[in-house]
């Protein structure tokens, strides 16, 4: 069902864990739907210098979180917002059609984390 690449990333994801000094955090989904995606961003001068994730979800959710966080590190916030779920799925060499639903969570959580960052900036 999953290709080798997805399995490899799932088995050894990058950026898994909590980011203590994150200044933008986004959470999408809930446990009763079977998926929660939490993304932590550390943003300095509008550049994402670090990103981490925590996931309650399937292998597709974990693999996409790994790839999406890799992709946003080093990008400006605006660049990061342009990264689409399809880019992440392409990088993984494709996902089974019924898994697309799980893979959009990373993109959504990144957007939520950026929003949280911007809210915090405004509050200052």
């Amino acid at each position: 069902m999953y290709n080798e690449k997805v399995l490899k990333v799932f088995q050894n994801p990058s950026n898994a864990g909590e980011l203590q000094d994150a200044n933008g955090v986004g959470t999408i989904g809930n446990a009763s739907c079977g998926d929660i995606m939490k993304i932590y961003l550390k943003i300095v001068d509008d550049v994402i210098v670090d990103a981490k994730f925590k996931t309650f979800g399937c292998a597709a959710a974990i693999a996409t979180a790994s790839v999406a966080t890799d992709m946003v590190i080093g990008k400006t916030v605006d660049e990061a917002l342009k990264i689409k779920n399809a880019d992440v799925v392409d990088f993984l060499g494709g996902l089974p059609p019924q898994k697309i639903h799980c893979s959009v969570l990373a993109e959504e959580a990144i957007h939520a984390a950026v929003e949280d960052y911007r809210n915090r900036q405004q509050a200052k």
Binding site: Y2, L7, F10, C58, C102
Partner: peptide, 20 residues
């Protein structure tokens, strides 16, 4: 499902009642 896949990557075949 993530438990299932991780067991599978270690050669163990089970099934899951999760939606995913």
């Amino acid at each position: 499902e993530s438990i299932l896949i991780n067991l599978d990557l270690n050669g163990i075949a089970v099934s899951s009642g999760s939606a995913c």
